[in-house]
Simulated scan of single mutants.
Amino acid sequence: MTRVVLASNNPGKLKEFSASLAAAGIDMLAQGALGVAEADEPFNTFIENALAKARHASQITGLPALADDSGLCVQALGGAPGVHSARYAALADGTRSDAANNARLVADMAAHTDRRGCYVAVLVYVRRADDPRPIVVEGIWDGEILDQPRGSNGFGYDPYFYLPDLGMTAAELPLEQKNQLSHRARALRALLQAVRSEYAAPTH
């Protein structure tokens, strides 16, 4: 098994990534268990923030590292809330909660008829801190933004994230179905394919 540090202390992410990547011979360890503090995320793009987190964790531990950055991007808002998704309301009035973020999103969308949005997840895997060619994958989940919430299964913006093909919001989906369709699930599948190729035994 290859030991890889996850540049996060989120137990849910650790469980999800560990389950997916164990098949590729990867043993995931949370950075906190190795004494790594969270890295700064000063950038305006998902890929730059994920790369900064991965390099930070790898630099301190000497291990390969995996990091993610994700959020909601809305067409009519120029891609906002984007990398600020978790603190969208806090940028305006200091309030930080899912409810406050959703209230700001609804208010910002009030004047727009273009309701298109997408969840984005970027995963970055570095073999070492100065890896010149990190593995970078992206998962996109397209939908539309509602002005009224529907469903209670999700979190974050899920009650307002409508999936026209299914006629439901992300918060109305059964958890198992959501975990198959989500942006993070799509990125994880792409990462698993890339990592399997990376560690596949040579055929000659």
Rank of each mutant, 00 (worst) to 15 (best):
G79K: 07
S8D: 14
A76T: 14
D165P: 03
A185N: 07
S20T: 10
F43Q: 04
V36L: 01
V126A: 00
A30H: 12
A86E: 11
P134D: 03
H112I: 06
Q31M: 03
R87A: 13
P174F: 11
E144M: 08
P202L: 14
G62P: 02
D147N: 14
L146G: 05
V137S: 11
H183R: 05
L14A: 04
V122T: 04
N44M: 10
A30C: 13
R96M: 12
D98N: 14
Q193R: 09
A24G: 05
G71Q: 00
G117K: 02
W141N: 03
G78E: 15
A30S: 13
C73M: 08
L29I: 14
L192C: 03
L77H: 08
A19T: 15
A19G: 06
W141Q: 07
P11R: 07
M28N: 11
G167Y: 09
R96K: 12
Y162Q: 13
D27Q: 13
D131K: 00
Q148M: 11
T2W: 08
K13C: 11
G35D: 06
A33D: 15
Q180M: 09
K15A: 13
L191Y: 06
Q177Y: 03
A22L: 12
R87Q: 12
Q180I: 06
D40V: 08
K178M: 05
P202Q: 10
A33G: 11
A33N: 15
Q75N: 14
A100M: 10
R115K: 13
A111C: 06
D93R: 04
D69K: 00
L63D: 01
A7Y: 15
T169G: 00
Q193E: 00
D114T: 06
R87I: 09
D130G: 08
G156R: 10
I60D: 04
R196Y: 02
L66A: 04
I140Y: 05
K15G: 09
Q193C: 10
R116L: 14
S20K: 06
V36D: 02
A103K: 02
D165N: 04
R55M: 09
G25F: 11
A100Y: 12
L14F: 03
E38N: 07
I145V: 13
C118M: 13
G79L: 00
L34Q: 08
L51Q: 13
P149I: 08
A52Q: 11
L72K: 00
